[in-house]
Design a protein around this nucleic acid. Sequence first.
RNA 1: GCGCCCAUAGCUCAGCUGGAUAGAGCAACGGACUUCUAAUCCGUAGGUCGCAGGUUCGAAUCCUGCUGGGCGUGCCA
Length: 659
Amino acid sequence: MNILAELKNRFRDALVDVAGDSDVQSLLEMIKPAQDARFGDYQANCAMPLGKRLGKAPRDVAADILANVNLDDLCSETDIAGPGFINLTISDDWLTNQINTAGEDERLGVESTTHAQTYILDYSSPNVAKPMHVGHIRSTVIGDSLARTLRFLGHQVVADNHLGDWGTQFGMIIYGYKHFVDPKAYQQHEVKELSRLYRLVNQLIDYWKSKQQIEPQQDDINRRQVELERLEQVQPTGDKKEDKKHSKALGRARDQLASARKTLDSLTAKVAAIDSDPQLSAYAEAHPEIGRSALLETAQLHEGDSTNRQLWEEFLPKCREDIQRVYARLNVQFDVEYGESFYQEMLPGVVSGLQEAGMASESEGAQCIFLDEFETPMIIQKSDGAFLYATTDLATIEYRMQTWQADEILYVVDHRQSEHFQKLFAVANAWNAPDVQMHHISFGTVLDESGRPYKTRSGDAIGLEGLLDEAVNKAYEVVSANDDSKPNGAELSDETRKHIADVVGHGAIKYADLSHNRTSDYVFSYDKMMALEGNTATYMQYSYARVQSIFRKGNVEIDQVRTSVQPIVLEHSAERALAMMIMRYSEALENVLEDYRPNQLTNYLFDLAKRFSSFFEQCPVLKAEQESVKQSRLKLCDLTGRVIAHGLQLLGIGVVDQM
RNA sequence: GCGCCCAUAGCUCAGCUGGAUAGAGCAACGGACUUCUAAUCCGUAGGUCGCAGGUUCGAAUCCUGCUGGGCGUGCCA
């Protein structure tokens, strides 16, 4: 039972009577959980705007509404407060009834949707040629959680990992393999060597690019220097507005000069890193055309060159295996993993199809689609004949529509690609997929403490596996320290401690990501990511473990509790508050899907766990004075534990019985 | 230049799409372990919601302008 939905149902007819049937839906949206416990459990705020519209006093309108709505069984109290708020207090009897019903329900009182749809979820999608780094975590974890939630609510979901397995990076690896491979290292650990080759080639390409940029960059600095000196010479005019404008221009010129110098520094640093290393500089000297050559290797791969194709087929499974290890750790699964290469044969057809539809045309040698709303075109074929990711994405949509008849496609990709998706959706809707809803589930960038995109000192993105390892290690230390300090001595075997550390460590990393509003950038911090207190997955896991501990200490069989005829009774205010929160699980899940934001679920679970902690402090279970209260509280504990475990599971986070 | 996004407590962030006295978590301070796990709980302190206007019964939330920041911006993905 979704209480909010039930309230809306009850109010609907009353609102039609009072307001006429115009726009009842938007009035119903104004029924929501109370902001403050003093105002009851829910509040309806529709009387104020309605009063305005009808030219009546809002409090009178509120009274009219209340006179028309039947809440006798549902609410124990209905108040009109302030300017015309309708405050609603759910009746204890009704709540007791519902919580007992939910307790007997496998789905914890959450109903399946009545309008099931087919969703394609496109998430994670790493480039298989490089090791996964922190940047991949958000897409992976958010996408996984959305897939789980949609499924639970009854939708069809196809989780697709759209791997980057066909792009420029493979040309770079192939070039690296042909010229720099260390056969022994490759034999020992293929992926490690391939990733070294990728970084090496990347570094060499950067070297030549940077070297070319140094001179223009220096010129740019000189120009800015001159401009700055000129601005500094300008005397104040006495006119306040003018002077303010001038001082702003001056400040901007200084900033820009500083930033230009910084860019130059980083260019020279890149060059110096190679020049100072005899081995690397010898490589660089021997491969001055490496940038172009790597692109050529890619082009040859795409054209079906047998050597490159063979290398690609050799490398790909190994790279995929490597990535799979990370997914196994994260407990993330996909239904399909069609990489970009999968669509390769469709690409010429996409271009010709768009040409025939009159949407694509040639411009500067490339096949372009010009859209009214955008200055720059969507390029679907380069002047050298190669296809781009826009082409692949269009082919992918075509395939997904034919294969799954998708109602909706969600792309969980960071916000920097928003323009690409706007163009993509516009083209696909106009061309081959008119009916499908497509959404870019964008998320912010992971920043470092100074607000820049997160990188290690050497400029590489930080590896994901190392991060996970550290989180698990830290969790192990905390588990051990906590267990060692237990009043009656340690309880956990080392094996158990390791298992707990695994669940807690991975949970901490995932939760740190999921608990942020996905649209905002967030500052990456080891301490925050691995925090095990406060609003963290650990807090919920701990609550769950406390529930299990009660059962263990009391030698209580969970099955016996669940089948017991003693119903849950809500006497203590902490019991009632906890029960109310449990009942709101389905609201939380609806909120997640409203805007595809898993942080709605983390917020809910944190609230629920807080209510449980408060209950735990105030309401003894095993030592309850009456047997009936004990049985009731055991049931309430069990139900809390089930909701926490279930909610965490929808976030892709596990629980343990002891910690 | 143009486009998109952001600005909330010392720090990191919520704020349910316009509701009542703006909330958490860290950090700080003061309390609570002979009582089902103190990875916890209770309390104190901390705010001109970037600035200025506007819309209305009511604005952190919507609109306009400004300031400061991020990202994107024709052949990478």
